[in-house]
Amino acid sequence: MRFGALVKRDVLVSWRKKSNIYQPLVFQLLIVTMFPLGLGAGAQTLAKIAPAVVWILALLSTLITLENIFKDDYEDGSLDVYVLSGMSLPLAAFSKATAHWLTTGIPVMLFAPVIGVLMHLPEQSYGVLLLSLLLATPIFSLLGTVGSALIVNIKNGGMLLSVLIMPLLSPVLIFGAGAVLETTLGNSALGHLLLLLGCAVLALTLAPLAAAAAIKVNLE
């Protein structure tokens, strides 16, 4: 019930403030336009780097949204409200991650094929692209709660957040972009996807605990 209440509230807040939802997508469009401009518009050139570009854009566009997961609540005091309600902190962190995934992860995942088309990603890769992002976007959100909890009362903590989160996300990028790359070469991506699944399970178990620990220290 507490989980549902917090998720529902966060989704509602994001829904009212639509920029939360469309900003990452606009960011992806802007950046993807830079690639043909800088690289030349040859379909083959673009297709070659398409798996990496689609994946990195999904990653970066999510990254810019992570800072606010806890920060808004910290600043307006509503963090105190649910922390002092007796709700367990890992559950609170998990709820925040769920809401973030619903409002950012899913749109980013669904938008990735559009970027794929613009980058001439081969047709056979779209299924695995969606599947890999379905496994990876929850990891982004979960690790995002950890990063956001760490920097909750730092001004301009966005850069620091990137430094903290990027090394942790590098395995996810390797497995995820690797999965899409394998399909462009006509290979099976099963191994990559299973490793990605492993990362997701690990993030699901550990990230809420880490985020809760960081929130505790920050509220002290």
């Binding site: 807040v13 307006d76 005091g77």
Partner: peptide
């Protein structure tokens, strides 16, 4: 507890 920060969500 009710502190200086009120804890209302602005767009709710």
């Amino acid at each position: 507890y009710l502190g200086h920060k009120l804890g209302n969500k602005g767009n709710l």
